[in-house]
Design a protein around this nucleic acid. Structure first.
Length: 660
DNA sequence: GTGGATGAG
DNA sequence: CGCTCATCCAC
């Protein structure tokens, strides 16, 4: 804990130049609404340290100071921090890595293998590139567990503004939470503004020492040191930092993972902040430090400027230094990259970013793909891989709650690459019918046929299968029996859609399912439990949609077994079948329940699950709607802020009114 | 809605 | 690097 020095110290407040805060009661109100244009906004970015490597360390029970890397075929895809101190990184060749760090532990990722119906960690996987495809499922599972801990650590009040930005990172909008803590702590802010004028400035904060604990603080520009008194924007950052510290602590204590975090006024700055000091540290970027902090970066490090757009800007202005771009006028920027992108760029290099934290934690598509080292040359070969892709995707669909009709993908897509050419075809997944491996595989085969009809399809260097267009299943939760169904377009459930006894079977309906909604993720309870799939393409029994082939319960301790890196015999098929008749497998509990107790058990869940809805966000709709990144800030003159266009082509930004 | 491209991790 | 995911755009 090399704590850094507090940056803001007490100022004895004698006839300060300013008796009032520069923020107003209106700003405070905007904070409570998580307005993206609020100057007191607090956003956090949390990033797991070398995530895949940590997953493997924890799974295998490797000591924290042991160098470990995660291997995929002949490359490394993650390197933990102890290993990095030997000079290792992701792009280093394996013999090189061993030379630099002889004690390096290398763990290959889990793989799917033809003829097997589960992914597994296999001792020979790195030599099996021709028969295996990698599975990231273990990491997805861990990611869900972590997300769940984050959510349960934060106030429950829906909507929780947590955005999953990747398998190992999230953004959190802390504004509302910070606001409530602020009012508790400083009751003088709670009253109505003087003269009931929201534009009245807030009182100045008490000039106490701000205790930043162990947080890293971004240095101030030397030109800014005079304006020393803490204002409310400093206080809210401090509160945000305390919250984030609690979240990180919970992740650490409950799941053993370390992470780094950034706390700042918006997503961009929070993200830059989380990368400032790693591993296992958090960094506060106070508003007064933004410019100085940014000046150290190449603008190509900023999100959306890492690719062709960034290159375009570099070549247009002959520099990759952010500071130099600051001297470029808005009009010049617009002239080079278009109006919208130019406007976006002008703001972003000044630390402005009004993009929303969209409280979405669920994926929109899933994909299973493989590059073929020697290319493949026949339909036969292609179909073998399709079989594996389908098994992979189906297992993940099960995790998504698809068999319980919680969510459902609408389309399937097949991509095919031959040489430089990539072509794809897509088809709707027939509605009204249960999704199973057999139907998915048939669809995939159809797509394959469509892709290879015209033109040369061989040799094929890459195939990828994806499903997408997920629709929410039933989200409602009324109904004494807990029986719910969903029509194709039903987004919510009302009494008319509710069935008496759970088995109406119009052709257009999916098989009605009992409700079994678990917070977000039924699978998070089991550490590295394998996802299931039958491996065969037979239908489930119509009334046993909830059941899954039994897991091997031997490792189910709710926690990792450091002793068992490798898996694990699974039940024999016959036993499986027998078991399925007498029990059903409750994914929420991760255990088998006797048929006789099924109804009661379901009802118990039903009653239990009336909390967390991740669905409809009412949104802070005063300003912007979910997914709209664009909010106009009208500080003076009011310039629009928009997303950058793609490929240098600006896209229309939508404008929303702001305050002030 | 479809298919390609860009971008991030 | 190889694999996943998301978003946007022209059609």
């Amino acid at each position: 804990m090399s704590s850094s020095q507090p940056f803001i110290t007490s100022s004895p407040i004698v006839a300060g130049p300013r008796r009032k805060s520069k923020f107003t009661f209106k700003h405070l109100s905007l904070l409570s609404q998580s307005s993206t244009s609020c100057p007191l906004r607090v956003v956090a970015h949390i990033d797991l340290d070398a995530f895949y490597a940590q997953c493997e360390m924890i799974r295998l029970g490797v000591a924290e100071d042991q160098p470990l890397a995660v291997q995929q075929w002949q490359g490394l895809i993650a390197v933990n921090y102890p290993a990095r101190s030997f000079g290792l990184n992701r792009f280093i060749a394996i013999p090189e890595a061993k030379k630099l760090c002889p004690q390096l532990i290398m763990q290959h990722v889990a793989t799917w293998r033809e003829g097997d119906d589960k992914w597994a960690y296999r001792p020979d996987s790195s030599k099996s590139i021709n028969t295996d495809k990698v599975s990231l499922d273990p990491y997805r599972l861990q990611s869900r567990r972590i997300l769940a801990v984050i959510k349960e650590t934060l106030p429950p009040a829906p909507p929780q503004k947590v955005e999953k930005a990747g398998i190992d990172e999230v953004f959190i909008d802390l504004s509302e939470h910070v606001h409530s803590i602020l009012l508790e702590r400083y009751p003088e802010l709670a009253g109505p503004p003087p003269y009931d004028d929201p534009l009245e400035n807030l009182p100045q904060p008490p000039s106490t020492v701000l205790d930043w604990k162990a947080d890293a603080l971004v240095d101030l520009d030397s030109s800014q040191t005079e304006d020393d008194d803490p204002d409310w924007d400093d206080i809210v950052m401090l509160i945000g930092s305390e919250i984030v510290r609690d979240v990180r602590k919970a992740i650490r204590e409950k799941l053993k993972y370390t992470c780094s975090a950034g706390i700042a006024r918006n997503k961009m700055m929070a993200k830059l902040g989380s990368g400032y000091k790693k591993p296992n540290s958090q960094t506060v970027v106070r508003n007064r430090a933004v410019q100085h902090f940014l000046s150290d970066f190449k603008f190509t490090k900023i999100r959306n400027l890492g690719g062709k757009l960034g290159e375009q800007v570099v070549s247009a202005f002959g520099t990759d230094q952010l500071t130099e771009l600051l001297t470029v006028s808005l009009d010049q920027l617009k002239a080079k990259v278009g109006d919208d992108t130019g406007t976006w760029l002008y703001g972003v290099i000044r630390g402005e970013d009004t993009s929303e934290i969209s409280p979405r934690t669920q994926i929109k598509s899933m994909l299973s793909a493989k590059s073929f080292r020697p290319s493949i040359n026949s339909i036969d070969q292609a179909e073998k891989w399709l079989r594996i892709f389908v098994a992979d995707i189906y297992a993940r669909l099960v995790e998504e709650g698809v068999v319980e009709n919680k969510r459902r993908p609408k389309t399937m897509n097949l991509h095919h690459r031959q040489g430089g050419q990539t072509r794809s075809k897509q088809l709707p997944i027939p509605s009204g019918r249960r999704i199973d491996e057999g139907s998915l595989f048939d669809l995939a085969k159809t797509l394959l046929g469509q892709v290879i009809v015209d033109g040369r399809a061989w040799p094929c260097a890459n195939l990828s299968l994806s499903v997408g267009g997920f629709e929410d299943g039933v989200t409602g939760n009324r109904g004494i029996g807990g029986f719910l169904v969903r029509g194709d377009e039903a987004k919510t459930v009302n009494s008319a859609q509710r069935l008496q006894n759970g088995h109406d079977s119009t052709d257009e309906e999916f098989a009605p399912r009992k409700r079994r909604k678990v917070a977000d993720d039924p699978n998070i309870r089991r550490f590295f439990s394998k996802s299931e799939s039958t491996g065969e393409y037979e239908d489930f029994d119509e009334d046993s949609g909830l059941q899954t082939p039994e897991h091997n319960d031997a490792t189910d301790s709710g926690h990792q077994q450091s002793s068992k890196p490798e898996q694990d015999g699974r039940p024999k098929e016959q036993e499986l079948h027998q078991q399925q008749l007498e029990t059903y497998f409750c994914k929420a509990c991760q255990r088998s329940i006797p048929r006789s107790e099924e109804a009661e058990h379901q009802d118990w869940h039903f009653a239990k699950d009336l909390e967390n809805e991740d669905r409809h966000q009412t949104g802070s709709d005063t300003i912007a709607r979910p997914n709209s990144n664009s909010v106009v800030r009208s500080k003076r003159g009011g310039s629009g802020t928009m997303r950058p266009g793609r490929g240098g082509k600006p896209q229309t930004g939508q404008k929303k009114l702001a305050f002030s």
